[in-house]
């Protein structure tokens, strides 16, 4: 019996719990249980990876130091995450969701930075890495701004002159920059790091013009972005649980974002491009 197959089965169980969890989360009677099922699947996927993951090229090693570091990192994250989630007032929950979403985005961006050098020469893999890097960074900085807005640290929408045109131009430049890196495949890390910085700036520009009342929609949108970033990571590692988990959130998150807009009676384009309340948009 190959160990690889055990991990494959663990990932399969994880993926199924994510689907069932999401399904149950969309009904009031089953929602809480659904969340626990998904959490159970996640625990299995994480434990399985630590125990049984092996790179087909033989790069994987399990020196005690590395295992201790991984467990320590998980310990710190668990302690801080649990404490924050349970101490904060109920009314501050949405901003916490945004904060945790940003952490996931940052995690995806860091994976992109670390994997870049190993994949020079493999255009397909690099495209995946660069896409994950951009989306993860945008999601991180955007979520932090959304957090600060809900927090009321940042009270008024900040609208730079013709911010819609500016933002669109920055977005196009960002995609072109990413495409150039995939094409040129520079060996130096300077350009990928500049790309990361540019994506962080875009995330900020994307969220600062949007009013506080629209933040839940924006968080939901950034949430599906992080899902996509995770899915790109799954693609890179041929890892099914990352792929299904990420894409499920990407697609379900998009539908949810649209549903939230519908509940507010406003199209998504209004939220993003700020057509709402044109009176206070002069600035």
């Amino acid at each position: 019996m190959e160990i690889k197959y055990i991990l494959d089965i663990v990932y399969l169980i994880g993926s199924v719990t994510f689907v069932i969890g999401l399904k149950m989360l969309s009904h009031p009677d089953t929602a809480r249980k659904g969340n626990l099922y998904a959490a159970f699947g996640m625990t299995l996927a994480i434990a399985g990876t630590i125990l049984w993951y092996n790179h087909p090229g033989g790069y994987t090693s399990r020196e005690p130091l590395k295992i201790i570091l991984i467990l320590a990192a998980i310990g710190i994250g668990t302690f801080a995450g649990w404490l924050t989630a349970n101490k904060v007032q109920m009314t501050k929950m949405p901003e916490l969701v945004s904060l945790f979403n940003g952490m996931g985005g940052a995690c995806a961006a860091l994976i992109g930075i670390m994997e870049y050098e190993h994949n020079i020469g493999n255009t397909g893999a690099l495209a995946t890495i660069i896409a994950g890097l951009i989306i993860g960074s945008v999601s991180f900085s955007g979520s932090i701004i959304a957090f600060l807005k809900l927090n009321e640290t940042m009270k008024k929408p900040i609208r730079l002159p013709s911010y819609n045109i500016l933002n669109t131009a920055v977005m196009i430049a960002l995609v072109a920059f990413g495409a150039y890196i995939v094409y040129a495949q520079p060996e130096h890390m300077l350009l990928p790091i500049l790309l990361l910085a540019a994506a962080l700036v875009y995330g900020v520009l994307f969220v600062i013009p949007i009013g506080g009342a629209d933040m839940p929609v924006v968080i939901s949108l950034l949430n599906s972005f992080t899902g996509l970033a995770a899915a790109f990571g799954g693609f890179l590692y041929q890892n099914q649980v990352m792929l299904t988990g990420g894409i499920l959130v990407g697609s379900a998150g998009t539908i949810l974002t649209l549903a939230m807009c519908k509940a507010m009676n406003r199209p998504l384009s209004n939220v993003i491009f700020g057509a709402f309340g044109a009176g206070n948009a002069s600035g």
């Binding site: 994880g14 994510f18 969890g21 999401l22 989360l25 969309s26 009904h27 009031p28 929602a31 659904g34 969340n35 998904a38 959490a39 996640m42 996927a45 929950m93 949405p94 969701v97 945790f100 979403n101 996931g104 995690c107 995806a108 994976i111 993860g136 839940p216 968080i219 939901s220 949430n223 599906s224 992080t226 899902g227 970033a229 995770a230 990571g233 799954g234 649980v241 990352m242 988990g245 990420g246 499920l248 959130v249 990407g250 379900a252 998150g253 949810l256 549903a259 939230m260 509940a263």
Partner: peptide, 16 residues
């Protein structure tokens, strides 16, 4: 359920 679902989905992409 919009907000809890968003939050649950947020946890799931933690699979990263």
């Amino acid at each position: 359920l919009h907000t809890p679902l968003m939050s649950g989905a947020n946890a799931i992409h933690g699979v990263v």
